[in-house]
Design a protein around this nucleic acid. Structure first.
Lengths: 348, 348
DNA sequence: CAGTCGGCTGCAAAGGTTTGCAGCCGAAGA
DNA sequence: TCTTCGGCTGCAAACCTTTGCAGCCGACTG
């Protein structure tokens, strides 16, 4: 039923190679011929068979995007940006969701490897060595993590965490908790490192709680622990946890920011809607998505791995660009001055 | 570099067709041979080339999922469910986002058509006739819309809207607004129809506001209009709009549910977190995703369109199952009794 | 007028897999 | 002992497209 290149060739009275060139190298075919071929193709509803094309060129014109949890509002803007950028370059994006599971992650990247030209690993939970291994099988760009020798696009959460802690210090807080992220998260490690350093240089005490699930539930589950710990401020791994925590504290009668200040990370859309509006570290997620796609496609055009590829002779120079995008503290209503001492912050 | 079927054949001393069968029809090959071949394959890191397989079988083992807006929290659970179900049957899912744009939608489905075995059209914004046209090019299952002659999985938002209106009537509300959804949305039309009927039979007055963007912003933008209209209750197209509206009303000094009751639709995770917790019509999104995948795969196995396909002779019986999933009203804190008359609900 | 060149097109191989058909071998039945 | 049969494997065509090479033709140069 579907028209092939042969049907078009017959209809327009040229050889199939001319039809092929009409689509993949238009400048090589006579304008008159081209319009005739295009007309016939249009007429027959012909669309090049991507499988056949992929078989010979070695490129699928698809890229894979693996995220930890598509339901986490942090990811959709990144996905949209990546999709847009890819589409713009005539690529499509496979989105896959690992449910925060490193094993599912590995399975997915293998399953995807054979049908995409490259993979974007977004906030990977697997080990660096596994990532390196995977990168030998398929071109990879890593988002939200630093892996030596691999192209990465990161957001400067270290700087963000520092800014958040300094903001809290400025409000007088000296007992601060850090709600850690999921096990295996580079971002979580970076935040911890930077927050610890910033707290120390401000002579504040930093309590690390975690690792945790980076969701509302994960944040809410820590409310009791936060209250008991006697801290007056909290920096959460992300906005979702911050929101869950605020909710949980509220249920315990502890008010934010009156009794406890809370800072999130990501600046998801939700954060400017919930009450109180969340003070947070804004991350440039859309830019990260676009940049990562560009880097992957760049990588891809540098080192062709097609059927006709000449081997690895040329591709060895390994660009391995590593991009660090800036973050920014957005102060809203969930942070305030440290409460007067004497009360213990339970709000009772 | 990547191992082909030929390498495996050579290594294990059998013909390539035996290797092929080892993977695609294991019962046809001698168990001993099979283990040897599998061992060699494992050894060489062989993975069947999906493009080559697709070229000959006519199946890509991919399905496309087109949604209006991946950042709308309504969709991710559906996407996850669809992905899970698909993966379970050895399929992968392409997710694409149309940004609520019918034109982008059409472009996407065409772009996808050639590289997937079928497309899930989720909450399509294009016209029915266009959908029918598309369905001649590629197998289609429609989600959240009824199209005659096409397999559809719908959620009974009509019943949901009726339940919501009746809930409001029971609380004494007689002046109710309906915040309409986006242009082209079947759900929006169904809700309007059912809500109008329910309001009429309860002798209530229903004001329809819209169409609108189905986002927080879209909801927030209607706050002023809602306040001026003098209604005491609002049924919003979805939770996002409801939340935006509550936010907008709050900024105007109108409190929910004290001055105005608000009901949403979808029961997204967020709805039980924001203050006040949202009364809403829960829709079975995950079930919809799973069901749709099943229907598409079923459709697909009924009517092979592969290179070896015998033509359309057998596939004509057109199953066209249409599934309607039930919805459920979840009463939380955003609805309450109608305020005492005399005050006009401005809360001032 | 001979030679060259450039633009365009045709030819055919190649890419990795699936699958109908045929052949092989050993065992069971006659 | 000769068929028959079934289980397994090999053979080769087919799927659709891309691309290096070669050939054609007309025009320009010397």
């Amino acid at each position: 039923m579907p028209a092939t290149i042969r049907d078009v060739a017959r209809a327009s009275g040229v050889h199939i190679s001319t039809v092929s060139r009409t689509f993949s190298a238009p400048h090589l075919v006579n304008p008159e011929t081209r319009v005739r071929v295009l007309a016939c193709a249009e007429d027959l509803g012909y669309r090049p068979n991507r499988a056949a094309r992929a078989l010979i060129t070695g490129r699928t014109h698809n890229i894979g995007l693996i995220v930890a949890d598509i339901a986490n509002p942090f990811f959709p803007p990144l996905i949209k940006a990546a999709e847009g950028q890819a589409r713009h370059r005539d690529y499509h994006v496979f989105v896959a969701d690992t449910n925060e599971d490193p094993v599912a992650e590995e399975d997915l990247v293998h399953a995807l490897a054979k049908q995409v030209d490259g993979v974007l690993l977004c906030s990977p939970r697997m080990s660096n060595s596994l990532i390196e291994q995977v990168s030998r099988e398929v071109p990879v760009v890593v988002i939200n993590r630093q892996v030596a020798g691999l192209p990465c696009v990161m957001m400067d959460v270290g700087q963000g965490a520092r800014a958040a802690i300094e903001h809290l210090l400025g409000l007088g807080h000296r007992r601060i908790a850090l709600l850690g992220g999921p096990r295996g998260s580079w971002t979580a490690r970076e935040m911890r490192r930077a927050a610890t350093a910033a707290a120390r240089s401000g002579s504040a005490e930093l309590t690390v709680l975690g690792p945790n699930q980076p969701t509302e539930t994960g944040g809410g589950a820590l409310a009791e622990q936060v209250r008991r710990s006697g801290v007056t401020a909290v920096l959460a791994y992300n906005d979702l946890m911050a929101i869950g925590l605020i909710e949980g504290l509220d249920a315990l009668g502890t008010r934010v920011p009156h009794d406890v200040s809370v800072v999130g990370v990501d600046d998801i859309a939700l954060s400017s809607i919930t009450r109180p509006k969340l003070t947070t570290v804004a991350t440039p997620t859309a830019a990260a998505g676009r940049t990562a796609v560009d880097m992957l496609l760049q990588l891809d055009s540098d080192a062709p791995r097609g059927a006709r590829g000449r081997g690895a002779a040329a591709g060895d120079r390994r660009t391995t660009a590593q991009v660090m995008l800036q973050t920014e503290l957005v102060v809203r209503d969930s942070t305030g001055p440290v409460p007067a001492p004497g009360r213990d912050g339970t709000g009772a």
